[in-house]
Design a protein around this nucleic acid. Structure first.
Length: 484
DNA sequence: CACTAGTGCAA
DNA sequence: TATTGCACTAGTG
């Protein structure tokens, strides 16, 4: 296990990174294609779980592939991205993996014990209310009980029958007591089965810490991902979720520093579109969702309700994701016409955003790809599909990739500079996690404020955005406290 | 044991 | 029929 990890870190290689910049959707295959083109033998793809074989295969990419691949990276205008960002980032990620993060096992055990009791109660209660025993984790059986036996109001359908997801259950919660029992069982069993159970068992006996794996060539937008465990999906939204997060702790005498970019994708949108209203809102440090609501609904910010602000928040998410009236209507649970109305009003109030979206789509259709501010290219073949839905997907991917990809570029620059400055200044502090727009560091207590300031500087200065990048920094004894 | 569908966690 | 990921359980072959 430890050997495999060490090997994996050592085997990160420049050809795979180059392949990732050439075709981020399928780096492994792009590497194979090129190898075949040069008449080189391709080691067969290993079984999905054979980590060692996968490493050998990667390491087997011969040196003579490097030059032709770099030529292609250069042709694509991504050479600086390669040399100045992706390549140096590899060492930063290796150090972060090696550092790991500390978990308070005892705290997690306490929560688990509490939830295990409650889950048992809920199961007994569910069988009693259903009048029979059934497998609560089976969507088929839950659907049979709710919609056939109890004849509750069915919602959407999937390929195999009625959906029983969170939103459907929320809608019929009032119809039968069993629904609430299932909802609570789902929440608790999710947390126990995905986090509270597995995480402690993944603690390294060597240093008592949890070591994730950062994947640098997986996400098609340029983002990182983490696996085994996926530390980029630790709960935070519910009270129980925050309890779990608070079991991620600093060593004695150390603190956790959390720094996250504020509205980074919307700021990037403001920059690339040049939209004056958006830029002005950020310059004034306004609540961006409230400002959007005021613009779209034609009201004073001070008079907005929470629901109105939430509508605007969803519209902003929609813009980032590549908006569609259908998607917005699904998310807000409103009629499609109403959703279209919100979109129309938004685009009328932010005309430069509308221009940006149109330009980006035209560019993607013409070139077959879009490019981030730092020169990362994402191919969008979907945009030329004959199928209308696929084409619409391509349009959303094109728009989203510019913002999500630029945000990924920017935080990678910050990581490299922070890592280097910590070293140069002889700090004990170290990066431990990256969660897309957030960096988590473990810092000797005495260095806390100094490092917090260093991190803010490097994150804000990573790219000269207009409006400027903004960062929220906090610290504490655990991850939850550090974000507070 | 490999695979898919459904579900849900994060940004 | 909103973007990017990873992981779990049930169910199938």
């Amino acid at each position: 296990m430890h050997d495999a990890k060490a090997l994996r870190v050592g085997a990160r290689d420049d050809t795979l990174l180059a392949a990732y910049l050439i075709d981020p959707g399928r780096a492994e295959y792009a590497l194979d294609d090129l190898a075949a083109e040069y008449g080189l033998e391709v080691v067969p793809e290993p079984a999905a779980d054979d980590e060692t074989a996968a490493l050998v295969r990667r390491a087997a990419a011969p040196a003579r592939l490097v030059a032709p691949m770099l030529d292609r990276v250069r042709e694509r205008g991504s050479e600086r991205l390669y040399r100045e960002i992706e390549l140096p980032l590899t060492g930063v990620l290796a150090a972060m993996e090696a550092a790991g993060v500390k978990i308070d096992e005892y705290r997690m055990g306490e929560i688990t014990a509490r939830l295990a009791d409650r889950i048992e109660e809920l199961e007994a209660k569910a069988y009693e209310l259903a009048g029979e025993e059934f497998v609560l984790g089976s969507t088929q059986q839950v659907a049979r009980i709710l919609f056939e036996k109890l004849a509750l109001t069915p919602g959407r359908k999937g390929k195999t029958g009625y959906s029983t997801d969170t939103r459907v259950l929320r809608t019929i919660r009032h119809e039968h007591e069993l629904v609430g029992v299932i909802e609570e069982w789902r929440e608790l069993s999710k947390l126990v089965n995905t986090y509270l159970g597995p995480l402690p068992s993944l603690i390294s006996p060597a240093d008592g810490r949890l070591h994730t794996t950062f994947n640098q060539t997986v996400a098609s937008t340029g983002r990182l991902s983490t696996t085994n465990p996926n530390l980029q999906a630790i709960p935070i939204r519910t009270e129980l979720g925050r309890e779990i997060r608070s079991a991620f702790v600093a060593e004695d005498g150390w603190r956790l520093v959390s720094a996250d970019y504020s509205q980074v994708e919307l700021r990037i949108l403001a920059h690339v579109s040049g939209e004056p209203v958006l830029k002005e809102a950020f310059a004034r440090n306004e609540d961006i969702h409230a400002r959007t609501a005021a613009e779209v609904l034609g009201k004073e910010q001070a008079t907005l309700t929470k629901d109105e602000r939430n509508v605007a928040k969803m519209v902003n998410f929609g813009i980032i994701y590549g908006i569609s009236a259908f998607g917005l209507s699904e998310n807000l649970e409103i009629p499609r016409e109403q959703a279209q109305e919100y979109i129309d009003r938004y685009l009328a109030r932010f005309p430069h955003v509308q221009d940006f979206i149109e330009r980006t789509i035209e560019q993607a259709a013409r070139d077959g790809y879009v490019t981030t501010l730092l020169g990362r290219r994402r191919p969008v073949p979907e945009i030329r599909a004959s199928n209308r839905q696929t084409r619409a997907l391509g349009e959303r991917l094109a728009v989203n990739s510019v913002m999500q990809g630029t945000a990924a570029d920017v935080i990678k620059v910050a990581m490299i500079r922070i890592h280097e400055r910590l070293r140069a200044e002889g700090r004990g502090a170290r990066l431990v996690l990256q969660v897309h727009d957030e960096l988590l560091l473990e810092v000797p207590q005495t260095e806390t404020t100094g490092v917090a300031e260093l991190v803010r500087e490097e994150m804000c200065g990573a790219y000269p955005l207009d409006p400027a990048l903004a960062v929220d920094v906090g610290y504490g004894d655990d991850w939850n406290a550090a974000k507070g």
